[in-house]
Amino acid sequence: MEDMEIISLWKAQNARIDQSLTLNRKLLHETLQQKARISLKGLRTIRWTGIILGIGWCIGIATLLLSSWPVTSVVFKISLGINFFVTAIAVGLYIYHLVLIHGFDNSQNIVTAQQKLSELKVSNLKTLGVLWIQLPVFSTWYMSVEWMQQSPLSFWGIQVPIVLLQTLAGLWLYRNLNIRNHDKKWFRWFVSKGEFARIEKALEITKEMEEFAKVSQ
């Protein structure tokens, strides 16, 4: 079948469609007057949940830190301070994402729009990466000079290696939980779980788009 025949076949179908379609103006009027469904609802929900939980967590940490200030150790204060600071950064990132989602424009060309959409979908990864940095503070807040002096074996032999391992793991995840690793097996396993299935699908589209936008040889 030649090109012109294929196009003429499509045109015949078009004529049929044009004849068969009727715009339901009454229903359309009603729909347009209603508040349109919020676009990118899923992406917004995750961010709003993160912002609300993050602010709640920060308020809790700040309250605990300030109310116990005179009686707590420096290590405790630093641990909670880092936790507060990192959570606040994550909240800030989520707010930034919401601004980007709000400004997303579907009338851009397909490659640009889909690229931005995929970036928005995987932007949660960056926030997650930042949150991993604070991993060791969950094991440092109860450390004390007394513990080090009274039980050096458990302190240096168990606690410090745990904190070091958590630090290394946190830094590694911060650096590697990145879209550039989307081809790696561990990354795909990591993002295929639960809510992150959305990211995996965005990555599939990114891959397809990169292939599509590549100048053909």
């Binding site: 379609l21 715009l23 729909t31 899923g42 579907n106 851009q108 397909i110 959305r198």
Partner: peptide
């Protein structure tokens, strides 16, 4: 653009779609 994105979330959308008995564009 909407269709490409829609394709990605087709399964989850089935749950939240609006229960219109009529359609905005009718096809006879």
């Amino acid at each position: 653009n909407v269709s490409i994105s829609f394709n990605r979330k087709e399964k989850s959308r089935k749950v939240i779609s609006m229960p219109f008995t009529e359609t905005l564009i009718q096809f006879a």
